[in-house]
Amino acid sequence: MGGQTRVLFGIGGMVDPKHLQRLIGNGQHPVTGEQLGRLWRVYQPMTDEYRQAA
């Protein structure tokens, strides 16, 4: 099956840096820009005060 990606999935061509940014950087569909899945969670950094309170 190796080397048949284009035939199996109907894909090919060069990858545009803009598309990589959408997919990897923003979690969006590379062509349409539609959001894929959920955004990454952002946690507050733990401070010494927070650790002592826990």
Results as ranks from 00 to 15, higher is better:
P17Q: 12
A54I: 11
Y43L: 14
W40V: 10
H19P: 00
G3M: 02
I24T: 12
D16M: 05
G33I: 02
L39T: 07
P45M: 05
R51C: 06
E34T: 10
V7F: 08
V31F: 14
N26S: 06
T5Q: 13
V7A: 15
D16R: 10
R22I: 01
G37L: 02
R22N: 05
P30G: 02
P30M: 01
Q35W: 01
L36F: 07
M1T: 08
V31D: 15
G13A: 04
Q4V: 10
R6L: 11
V7R: 13
R41A: 15
L36G: 02
F9C: 07
A53R: 10
T47Y: 03
G10Q: 09
V15W: 11
A53M: 10
E34S: 04
Q52S: 13
G27P: 00
R38T: 13
H29K: 06
H19I: 04
Q44H: 14
P30H: 00
G13Q: 11
H29W: 04
G33F: 04
Q35K: 14
K18E: 14
L20S: 14
R51L: 12
T32M: 05
L20A: 13
L39P: 05
M46I: 11
H19N: 07
L23C: 03
G13V: 01
M1V: 09
L36V: 06
P17R: 04
V31L: 12
E34Q: 07
R51Q: 05
Q35I: 09
I11R: 07
G37P: 00
L8F: 12
Q44A: 14
G10I: 01
N26E: 14
T32N: 03
G33H: 02
A53T: 03
R38H: 06
F9A: 11
G37Y: 04
E34R: 08
R22W: 03
I24D: 05
R22V: 02
D16F: 06
L39G: 08
N26D: 10
G10F: 00
A54P: 01
Q21A: 15
L8A: 14
Y50Q: 15
R6C: 09
L23H: 05
W40G: 09
D16E: 15
V42R: 12
L39E: 11
R38Q: 12
A53L: 11
Q4A: 11
G33W: 01
L23A: 09
V15A: 08
Q4D: 10
G10N: 02
G3T: 04
R22D: 05
D16T: 08
M46E: 11
G33A: 07
M14P: 00
I24C: 11
I24Q: 07
R22K: 09
R51Y: 07
D16Q: 11
G37S: 03
G37R: 04
R51I: 12
T47E: 07
H19R: 12
K18T: 07
A54F: 04
T47M: 00
G25V: 08
V15Y: 03
G12F: 09
D48P: 02
I24E: 06
R22S: 00
H19W: 13
Q4L: 15
W40L: 13
K18L: 10
D48M: 05
G37F: 00
L8R: 15
V7T: 14
G3I: 09
P45E: 09
V31T: 15
P17L: 07
M14F: 06
G3C: 03
M14L: 06
